[in-house]
């Protein structure tokens, strides 16, 4: 969210308080002191996490505090992981497998690469799953694991905290 503050003390608090009041989790605040908008205000970039229902109320309260809300970028699915499947992925109805994850409502398969050698041999899939929270991601993985087990597919997951080596 991009907001604009008057260059007087106490302004930042007016902008951030509504976020925490609504149970939001502030992840980053970039305060561009050396920049000015044509209106003479200081541009601020705030990144926060909050339940979908809380967002409109936060914006209303920030505005009510006299702060200009210039832009709101909503990233719904910001948790991601990836898994591989090995087995008869296509013959066991891949769209149903994808639907099972999507139907949780809070996660989606956002990328899928398939390798299908020939009809008799098993296929592999590399899929990226995105979700709106860690919990939703864990739920999506559980759904995928169960679906894969039903269909006799092998699920290969990444090791934990792989990211630190990237």
């Amino acid at each position: 969210m991009d907001i604009e503050l008057k260059d007087t003390p106490g302004q930042l608090l007016l902008a951030l308080q509504p976020i925490s009041e609504m149970g939001g989790n502030i992840q980053s605040v970039v305060h561009c002191h050396d920049k000015r908008t044509p209106r003479g205000t200081v541009p601020i970039h705030v990144v926060f996490e909050v339940a979908k229902e809380g967002l409109m109320e936060i914006i209303r309260r920030i505005k009510a505090n006299g702060v200009i809300v210039a832009r709101v970028d909503e990233r719904r699915l910001h948790e991601q992981t990836f898994v591989m499947l090995i087995g008869h992925i296509v013959h066991t109805d891949i769209s149903e497998t994808i639907d099972a994850v999507d139907s949780t409502g809070h996660s989606e398969i956002v990328d899928l690469t398939l390798s299908m050698p020939d009809v008799k041999r098993v296929s592999s899939a590399f899929m990226v799953i995105a979700a709106d929270s860690e919990d939703s991601l864990a739920l999506a993985l559980n759904v995928l694991r169960a679906t894969a087990e039903d269909k006799g597919l092998l699920v290969i997951e990444p090791i934990k905290d792989d990211a630190i080596w990237m």
Partner: peptide, 10 residues
């Protein structure tokens, strides 16, 4: 059950 195709895709 690991296949060369799966390794290649990874």
């Amino acid at each position: 059950e690991i296949t060369p195709e799966a390794l290649e895709l990874a």
